[in-house]
């Protein structure tokens, strides 16, 4: 945790470092920066901080908790003059999750997202292949349910090691 003296305005880099400590409440292995939720940070001349975030899914119930967590982390680090604003464009995509964050997801037992599709409006009967098992790397897996316990994940099953696992859906 970076602590910040109220006497001098915080640097943008210091704010970003603080945001690295804020984890997603539903995927606590990733920070809100690693998930791509934090889109911008501005520090004005008076030291007021504006953090721009974008929601993952429209109805993601975690977004309010994430905003509260960001403000709490900044306050704990001595940055009291801060606000969070929401931006919808460009729309969030799992393609923003970087390679090291994907490795963390896999180590946590969640198959990382594959590249998002940007094609046509209605894509039916395109049997989606199941992701490799994050535990044993087997490809002998199946998708049990496209919808999982959170909006961002589907539920899969590994036939090789018998382990159920979640997949972070490409979106």
């Amino acid at each position: 945790m970076v602590s910040h003296s109220p006497a001098s305005p915080p640097s943008r880099a210091a704010i970003l470092e603080i945001l690295d400590s804020v984890k997603d409440p539903e995927v606590p292995v990733l920070s809100v920066r690693e998930l791509g939720i934090v889109r911008d940070v501005e520090v004005d001349d008076a030291g007021a901080v504006t953090v721009t975030v974008t929601p993952t899914y429209s109805g993601c119930p975690a977004i309010q908790a994430i905003e509260d967590d960001i403000l709490a982390a900044l306050a704990t680090a001595g940055v009291a003059d801060a606000r969070v604003v929401t931006s919808y464009a460009p729309a969030w995509t799992t393609d923003w999750i970087e390679a090291d964050a994907r490795a963390k997801l896999k180590a946590y037992g969640i198959a990382p997202p594959r590249p998002a599709e940007h094609g046509g409006l209605v894509q039916l009967l395109r049997a989606r292949t199941a992701p490799p098992c994050p535990y044993c790397d087997s490809r002998d897996t199946e998708i049990r349910s496209e919808f999982g316990p959170t909006a961002c994940k589907s539920v899969c099953w590994c036939r090789s090691c018998g382990q159920p696992f979640e997949e972070f859906k490409a979106f």
């Binding site: 429209s58 931006s87 919808y88 729309a91 969030w92 894509q123 039916l124 009967l125 496209e146």
Partner: peptide, 22 residues
């Protein structure tokens, strides 16, 4: 911006309901 965000979700909604129609 709101429509572009919602469209991404509508696309997988229709995959779900369309496959149930089948």
């Amino acid at each position: 911006a709101i429509a572009a965000k919602a469209l991404k979700e509508a696309k997988y909604h229709v995959r779900h309901s369309g496959e149930w129609m089948l």
